[in-house]
Design a protein around this nucleic acid. Structure first.
Lengths: 350, 350
DNA sequence: CTCGGTTGTTAGATCGATCTAATGCCTGTG
DNA sequence: CACAGGCATTAGATCGATCTAACAACCGAG
């Protein structure tokens, strides 16, 4: 029963371009040009072929097309962790922009795992994707970029980048972003700053740490060595780090966090210790995910528009695909500080 | 300059199976069987061919393979809105499970837009995806399902389903879930319940509303007609609905929400009105996204493990792909109530 | 009346894998 | 010694589009 239906559909009488062409009384070549909306075709012919396609229920066969043309309208999107709302937004921005340009996106979450990432990149290459959005995770991302280079696949890096590569990068100015936060808390009178950063080896971690160091240097503040933490990028580890940091007499009066998720972790720690964000300790995040505005107290954070970065990255990648020879430049997006409640009002140190 | 590199890569001397076969001293057919890890091949031959592939830097050409076999190792994932953390988690669960089985997933966000959804489905069919995860949005989703049916593409519906279809559905027991919440607030002494639901026409909206109606009926509670709202699925609209609902003398003493996101919107409204969740009004969400446990007060909500649903859906779809004739049944996941703070302790009505 | 040029169309080769059906080889058995 | 049957391998057709290079028809200019 089902077998019959299947042979009917997958069997001999599949509607191919040949069938359409015959039905419309033209050659297969002509029909092919019609599919691709070529302007070589007379409008009258175009209409006739399109009508036949509709009448016969023609379905374009992507695989056949890509085999011959060595091209696909498919992009890869390799992202570290979609369960982070920031990346979800980024992914959504990218997908939106690609859809506008009639591209499909193959989505993959590396879960910050280098081995997984390598497998994914390989499969994307086999799939002959037209380009890849790449948010590198793991230590040997350079090898993966090299593999893409060999395959001749255009790539843009988003949010993170591996050093010494000529692959364009679209992301925020991390150094400047963190400094905005520091300027703010210092202006409010905070002096004992701490930083809960991401793991070493990621460009974003290192740049944000650099921003912290430059920021405190600018204000001639002394920072205790163990006030600078480096943990995995999630709420839990940030909370644990904060518990250690805050449960000591000489605790910091301001904490700058790698991102909002981790700032939430710190808030949890404070709550547990009976401390009030914005009063006992000022707190600054990074990313400005939608939740940040809604927590109590609302999180003061460095805002970088995820959807916008996605859109920009898509534009650069499309451009690279359209003309691969042109060298494209990085885009560094200027962040801005969203001042809300988690740093409180001006503060006189004890 | 780049042109040269390109012809080098894309030119005549591309490494195809033929080249590998010649290098290893076997036929192309044999090499093909090796790629597919067939057990027809002698282990010794297998090794030799694999060595040649490595030596020559062979890259499998997916398009060629799929053209001939009419099969891909690619799945489509059509989701309503990834900016909702719940769907992000669901997507991540699906992607994870698919990756295990060596499938790639093409991801698309319909943004609850029926027209967009239709385009996406068409493109997925052209792409000859092996199967589709489908979370229907828009009114004419039935047509889209029909298109997939005609193309012979296996589908599973997730979280929502269109009625009168034999396409398997994987999702939570919405009716029972909402009732769990109602039982809880009633047990605590709440009597004036309100419901802020999603838009009509979505199965999930209607089932959760049904759950509400059954729940209040069971406890013989009378619910004012305008205590039942139906708004778009986002924080803002929920907040606006709640403002109206709470800013009246006969305000409800408990609000059941379509999902957590909307419950957060209600919390915002309460905050604005100087009301305290769990004290003035009990609040119940749905989904149990990670944020729910972390807000203050922590949200009492109906938990359905998104990653788990993703995994289950993946299993069902894989199964359907493996043997399309077998009819697969729906999977209804039993939700459970996570009791936290937003409903407070027992309550004596005024 | 022929020629260059434009416009629309086309035949046939081609992309790189998989599939079908057949082959040679070996071993054990009647 | 012939033959059935399993094992490993293979030749050649095939999937359905695109590409190349050429062709027919027509027009206006010399």
């Amino acid at each position: 029963m089902d077998g019959k239906t299947l042979t009917e559909k997958r069997g001999q009488n599949r509607v191919t371009l040949d069938v359409v062409a015959k039905h419309a009384g033209v050659s297969r070549s002509t029909a092919s040009l019609v599919v691709r909306n070529s302007n070589l075709i007379a409008p009258e012919t175009h209409e006739r072929v399109r009508a036949s396609m509709k009448a016969l229920g023609y379905i374009y066969n992507q695989s056949a097309g890509s085999l011959r043309s060595q091209k696909t309208k498919t992009l890869g999107m390799v992202i570290a962790d979609v369960s982070n709302p920031f990346y979800a937004l980024l992914a959504s921005g990218i997908e939106w922009a690609c859809h506008q340009q009639d591209f499909l996106t193959i989505f993959a979450d590396t879960a910050e795992d280098g081995g997984r990432q390598k497998m994914i990149i390989d499969r994307l290459i086999q799939h002959n994707v037209a380009g890849v959005f790449f948010c590198p995770a793991g230590d040997n991302s350079a090898d993966d970029l090299a593999a893409l280079e060999v395959a001749g696949t255009p790539v843009v890096q988003i949010m993170r980048h591996v050093s010494g590569q000529k692959v364009p990068y679209i992301g925020p100015d991390n150094v400047a972003g963190v400094q905005l936060g520091i300027d703010h808390v210092v202006r409010l009178g905070r002096k004992k700053l701490a930083f809960i950063g991401g793991p070493a080896g990621k460009s974003s971690s290192e740049e944000r740490l650099e921003g912290f160091n430059q920021g405190v240097a600018k204000h001639r503040l002394r920072v205790k060595k163990d006030f600078i933490k480096s943990v995995a990028i999630n709420r839990r580890e940030a909370m644990e780090a904060a518990l250690v940091l805050l449960d000591r007499p000489d605790r910091p009066d301001a904490i700058i966090c790698y991102n909002d998720l981790m700032a939430f972790g710190v808030m949890l720690a404070m709550q547990r210790l009976g401390l009030v964000p914005g009063k006992d300790v000022a707190l600054v995040g990074f990313d400005d995910i939608p939740e940040s505005a809604l927590w109590t107290p609302a999180l003061t954070t460095v805002s970088i528009d995820a959807r916008n970065i996605g859109r920009l990255a898509a534009r650069v990648l499309m451009d690279k695909i359209a003309n691969p020879s042109r060298t494209s430049r990085d885009i560094i997006v200027e962040p801005k500080l969203m001042i809300r409640e988690s740093c409180g009002e001006s503060f006189a140190a004890a």
